[in-house]
Simulated scan of single mutants.
Amino acid sequence: MSIYPPQPWNLVADARVSVWRVPAADLPELPAEPLLVAGHASVFTAWIDYTPPGQLAYHELLAATAVKGRRVSCSISEIWVDSEVSLAGGRELWGIPKDLATLDFTGDRTFTATAATADDWIATAAFRRRGGLPLRVPTVFEVAQLLDGTLLRTPVSAKISPRAAAADWSFNPAGPLGYLSGRRPVTSLELPASQLRFGA
């Protein structure tokens, strides 16, 4: 018997997201062709706190790049969680390359986060909420990953309430997110109480 729920996973999440413009030459290896505009790709980094009443509760840091597809698509190149259940499910169901890390989140209106492995720190960030109406927006996209050598496109649907935020990030320049070190995000958002359905 699997230690993780069968797909789809129905999750509830508080997320903080930043968007970066990264030259194609600086992108990490991806399983699908990046979607480029003027030689740059959009990279999304997110701190996510999965909470009840969702099926799983854990913390996550990820980086994903917009890639070509039939609909809005991304590929996750780096991702850390503090849940062995999430790690196993992500890898075995969808080919998402999850690793374990220590993830510490604090605060609400001013949110801070740190991620580190036993070997070194990965990233830190601080988000400050800005004004905006909490409109509920449905969205659908795909996550493209390699599973057993085959490109798998996993559907994701979500209901989100995006709110503008200001964010300050620091990345370990020698770490796996070092390609973002020294850059500034194009925009940042808070997505409180998001509802996600991940998988088919």
Rank of each mutant, 00 (worst) to 15 (best):
Phe127Cys: 10
Ser157Thr: 12
Thr154Ser: 14
Phe141Ala: 12
Pro192Gly: 06
Thr117Phe: 15
Arg153Cys: 04
Asp119Glu: 02
Ala158His: 09
Thr150Ser: 11
Gly182Met: 12
Leu133Lys: 10
Asp108Gln: 12
Tyr179Gly: 00
Phe141Leu: 15
Arg128Glu: 14
Ser194Lys: 07
Ala165His: 10
Gln195Thr: 13
Gly132Trp: 06
Ala113His: 02
Ala115Gln: 05
Ser161His: 12
Ile160Phe: 07
Gly149Val: 08
Ala158Leu: 05
Arg183Tyr: 12
Ala167Trp: 06
Ala167Thr: 00
Ala115Leu: 08
Ala113Val: 07
Ala193Gln: 15
Ala113Trp: 04
Ala166Val: 06
Thr114Ser: 14
Pro138Ile: 07
Leu147Tyr: 13
Tyr179Ser: 00
Tyr179Phe: 13
Thr110Trp: 11
Thr187Asp: 04
Pro134Met: 08
Phe141Pro: 14
Phe141Trp: 15
Arg183Phe: 13
Ala125Thr: 10
Phe111Tyr: 15
Ala144Trp: 06
Thr150Cys: 05
Arg128Gln: 15
Leu189Lys: 04
Thr112His: 08
Phe171Ser: 00
Pro162Arg: 08
Ile160Gln: 09
Thr124Ser: 07
Ala193Ile: 03
Ala113Met: 08
Thr154Met: 10
Ala126Ser: 13
Leu146Gln: 04
Ala144Tyr: 03
Ala167Leu: 02
Gln195Ala: 14
Arg153Phe: 09
Arg136Phe: 07
Pro155Phe: 06
Pro173Cys: 01
Thr124Phe: 01
Arg129Lys: 14
Thr124Ile: 00
Arg130Ile: 03
Ala118Ser: 13
Gly149Ala: 04
Arg130Lys: 07
Thr150Tyr: 11
Ala158Trp: 03
Arg130Trp: 09
Ala116Asp: 09
Pro155Asp: 07
Gly131Glu: 05
Asn172Met: 02
Leu133Ile: 08
Ser194Pro: 11
Ala174Thr: 01
Ala123Ile: 01
Thr114Glu: 07
Arg163Val: 05
Leu177His: 01
Pro176Ala: 09
Arg109Ala: 04
Gln145Met: 08
Asp120Cys: 10
Leu191Cys: 10
Leu191Arg: 08
Thr187Met: 09
Arg153Met: 04
Val156Tyr: 15
Ala158Gln: 12
Leu177Ile: 00
Phe111Val: 14
Ala166Met: 01
Ala125Ser: 06
Ala166Arg: 14
Thr112Arg: 15
Glu142His: 11
Pro185Val: 01
Trp169Phe: 10
Gly182Asn: 08
Gly182Lys: 06
Arg109Gln: 12
Leu191Glu: 03
Thr187Gly: 11
Ala126Pro: 06
Leu180Met: 00
Ala118His: 12
Ser157Cys: 01
Leu146Ser: 07
Thr150Trp: 07
Pro134Leu: 09
Pro192Asp: 04
Leu177Pro: 03
Val140Asn: 13
Ser161Pro: 13
Arg109Ser: 11
Thr187Pro: 02
Arg163Trp: 02
Tyr179Cys: 00
Val186Asn: 04
Trp169Leu: 04
Pro173Glu: 01
Thr139Ile: 15
Ala123Trp: 09
Asn172Ile: 00
Arg128Met: 05
Tyr179Asp: 00
Pro134Gln: 03
Ser170Trp: 08
Ala164Tyr: 04
Val140Gly: 11
Phe141Ser: 11
Arg129His: 12
Lys159Glu: 03
Pro176Ile: 02
Ile160Ser: 03
Ala123Phe: 09
Val140Lys: 15
Ala164Gln: 02
Leu191Pro: 05
Gly131Lys: 13
